[in-house]
Design a protein around this nucleic acid. Structure first.
Lengths: 232, 232
DNA sequence: CGTTCAATTGATCAGCGTCAAACTAGGTGG
DNA sequence: CCACCTAGTTTGACGCTGATCAATTGAACG
């Protein structure tokens, strides 16, 4: 861990409000480490020893069953993972692997639970974070059960257009095969879905997305804050 | 609210450990009410005014989009709902309706947030409950994305067999149309899936389920605690 | 410049949804 | 108490969405 890591950690929402001594106690046992791309950080089913936080880079959460694999979500700078498992001292439900070179903060789960017990501001932040994650997953389920794969793709594109500043062109920040998995479809199907969005003014070449007529696309995608708004 | 409600509420996990005066403060503003079946308790998108708890009966959480509807889960005695929305003071992501005559406890969300701020034991219980719910939804997503509908049904049956005491016969506690929606399929498809499980020793007549060869069924369903265990 | 892996394309197929109709059961009122 | 009515369930026929398999193109990297 570098000296410069400490203010970085402190500025994360989860740690911003807590008392100085609690923060010191948490950081004392922390590890911060760089990982190469494609590194397995956590394996589904293992005991949860550390709360993880992405300081930089990106991490994929994924799940396996019966030889199949699916991507659950992709985490970027500032995101925490396996908070629920750390708090409940339960086995991890998902695996985690780096997508690119990433710097990861690891806090011993036991420290987290102990500090959680005594620092109220931290407890509050943990609850807010957990509630936020919970609502995120609920939105994901709603998308999966209520929408077709083309509708999911269309709404995904609209969401990222907004996140990227709202311009007509922006870059996909995920490999297409992973995007497909996150959206709950095969890579082949994603390719075809992309072409199926052409009549709605969508062109994707490589990582470059162009949405020439957002109104028309939204007309078909019917985005709603109750599924597509990352905040709220 | 009846006098007898108070010890009932107090005995729920969420309130068991908190200080007496905090509990009194929470209960002071509480409503407890009987609702007939099929009553809309909460509408998706509305502001979250009350934390709800099922004292008896059962409640369905459901979601709508673009004219479609899906059941998210079914809650029974002791379950809380819209805790995340109450804590974050955010709009509800799901609607809720009673399935049968149900007695529901309603705590003003503002009281919950205030007591949460000052009572640490309560904060702890809230976090545990939230983490529990979060993990439940994650398991649901894993089932949806990694399993076929027949596999989901098979695992559902095994899970409820265990919950019902492990005997070869037990009763479905849900209407089949709702079960279908929860499992992410149509009622017609559920009917056919049930018949497709016949070779694995499953017979369902009305609400009565008989699993004559659980080994054989489990062999095909491949249940795992990381998806199917309600605890952990 | 070649190797490797992602992305695309086409052909085919399976799973599952839709529609329609028959059947069943539970509840209500005569 | 029975007959009817309504709503859930089942069954069959059909079609669409999306998965699978195979082959090709394309792009990144050593």
């Amino acid at each position: 861990m570098r000296e410069s890591d400490i203010p970085t950690i402190r500025s994360l929402e989860l740690f911003r409000e807590m008392a100085d001594d609690s923060f010191a106690e948490l950081v004392r046992g922390a590890y911060v480490q760089n990982f190469p791309p494609n590194m397995e950080l956590i394996v589904e089913g293992d005991a949860c020893d550390f709360l993880h936080i992405v300081e930089s880079g990106s991490v994929e959460l994924l799940a396996n069953w019966n030889g199949r694999e699916t991507a659950m979500t992709i985490l970027r700078e500032g995101a925490t993972f396996i908070l629920a498992a750390a708090i409940r001292d339960a086995p991890n439900l998902m695996s985690a692997r780096t997508l690119e070179r990433s710097r990861i903060i690891m806090l011993p789960a036991e420290d987290v639970r102990r500090v959680f017990e005594k620092d109220h501001a931290f407890a509050r932040a943990v609850v807010m974070e957990l509630a936020y994650c919970y609502r995120g997953v609920i939105k994901g389920v709603k998308g999966l059960k209520l929408r077709s794969s083309i509708e999911r793709l269309a709404n995904y594109l609209l969401k990222w257009q907004k996140k990227s500043g709202g311009g007509a062109r922006f870059l996909l920040s995920v490999e297409k095969r992973r995007l497909a998995s996150i959206l709950g479809m095969t890579p082949e199907n994603l390719s075809r879905s992309i072409k199926a969005l052409r009549p709605y003014g969508v062109v994707i070449e490589g990582q470059m997305v162009e949405i020439s007529d957002p109104e028309k696309l939204a007309d078909m995608a019917k985005p709603t804050p109750l599924i597509d708004d990352p905040r709220s």
